Amino acid sequence: MSTAGQTNQRTALRRPVATGHGDLAAYARLAKLDIYDYYLGLLVVWTLLASGVRWKPQTFGLLALVLLAEVVVVAAMVGFDDVTGYRDGSDAANYGSDAARRRLARKPLVAGTLTEAQALRFSWAATAIGSALWAAVVAAAPHRPVWAVVLAALCVAASVQYSWGLKISYRGFQELFLIGLGVGWTLVPYALLTGGASGFVVVQAVLFGSGPMLFGLYSNTNDADGDRAAGRITVATLVSAPAHRVFVAAMTGAQLALIAGSAAAGAAPWWFPVAMLPLVGMRLAHLVIGFRGDILRARRIAIHAHRVTVVLLVVADLTAGALA
């Protein structure tokens, strides 16, 4: 096929005729409301709290407000991400050829169920509302350590500019963002409720944050060609496929080392690595499956491993509280 023909084909893929109706289901898909993995950190935060704080009505109220703020900010982030992916053709390239497994309908611009203008209006409105909600969270919090307030603002700013504005996910910082948002959204609400964070809290925040980063690495592996064509810089687009598998293995190993090392260093109870053994098994499973080439199956297992991590951390925190 000629260069002109390839260009026309790419344009046809990413410029479907949108209905323009913009029903609620299409906006829900734009906001990716079915992807709740970052929000699960609030369960970990709640179980980390001392029992005297955990059951206060004010605690439930603040956590509910944080949840709402997180959902709206993520809606802005993924809305802008879809607009950018639609404009540069990467979503059509990454989803159009694999719709059965990756559900093309989750990309309403590519699927033609929303227009670009509708998606942009939604994303800007979510940005304004999400920023206001986070300001309300800080105002309502019983504690306001400066570092936590700054970290909250940084998380909001980075989320909105993930694929828009500074486009940090296009500039080589995607992997750092994926882990950083989970860490931030665990440490910030905990600190706003308690005034600080212990070593064990930091360990759990990093364990939680590394979950989305790990399953994101498999997405990057699958999307490397489309991302490279769109100019999106990730580790997967910069190195060979074998080198990226080594990188995924190193990041997986780093999480497992954190589990063992935190107990050895005294930041976590001695029994913490034992409690996390189911996670270790799942991490090794998706690593082997990914190395064998079934990237999307490995990604699914990595997503489930992140959710299992939350369950294990909740049980560990409740156990630690009972033993204290």
Rank of each mutant, 00 (worst) to 15 (best):
V202K: 04
L256H: 00
A100T: 12
Q118L: 05
A132G: 15
N94I: 02
A69W: 05
F272P: 01
T3P: 01
L24V: 15
A64W: 13
D34P: 08
G281N: 06
I295T: 14
G281L: 05
A12P: 08
R102Y: 09
L154I: 05
G226V: 01
N8T: 15
A285F: 14
E116S: 13
A69I: 11
S219K: 01
T186Q: 06
L63K: 12
T221F: 14
P57R: 08
G209S: 10
L176N: 09
D227S: 06
G180Q: 02
A324M: 06
T186I: 10
F173T: 08
Q9N: 09
T115H: 08
G22N: 04
A302E: 03
G52T: 13
R300K: 12
V78F: 09
L48F: 00
A126H: 09
A50V: 12
A64V: 07
V110S: 01
M213K: 08
A28T: 07
S51T: 15
A264S: 13
D88S: 06
Y86A: 11
H286V: 05
S51G: 14
A99E: 14
L49I: 05
I233V: 15
P57T: 06
D317W: 00
A64N: 12
G199S: 06
Q161W: 09
A92Q: 02
A320R: 11
A139V: 11
L114S: 05
P57N: 11
V146A: 14
A230T: 06
A105K: 07
T234G: 03
A157L: 12
G293K: 03
R101Y: 08
L13N: 11
L24D: 15
A260D: 03
W271S: 05
Y38I: 07
G281Y: 11
A250L: 06
T3W: 09
I303L: 10
L193A: 04
G165W: 04
A139L: 15
I295R: 06
V110P: 00
G261T: 01
S198G: 08
W55N: 14
A243H: 11
A153H: 00
L318V: 02
L296N: 11
E175L: 05
E70H: 15
P278H: 10
Y190K: 03
G226C: 07
W164L: 14
G41S: 03
A324L: 13
L33M: 14
L63D: 04
V203S: 00
R54H: 13
V310K: 00
A322P: 04
S219V: 04
L63N: 10
A263R: 04
H286T: 01
A152I: 04
A100G: 10
T19W: 08
G290D: 04
A100D: 13
P16A: 09
G290W: 02
A224C: 06
T237R: 03
G266K: 11
E116Q: 12
H244S: 09
Y86F: 14
L13K: 12
A275K: 05
L181T: 02
P57K: 10
V160E: 02
R54C: 07
S2K: 10
D82E: 11
Q58A: 15
V17E: 15
G96M: 09
G209F: 03
A249F: 06
A126E: 12
G216H: 00
V201H: 02
Y190D: 00
W134G: 06
A125Y: 08
W55M: 10
G79Q: 04
H244T: 11
A152D: 04
A76G: 13
A76D: 05
G165P: 07
P108G: 07
Y95H: 10
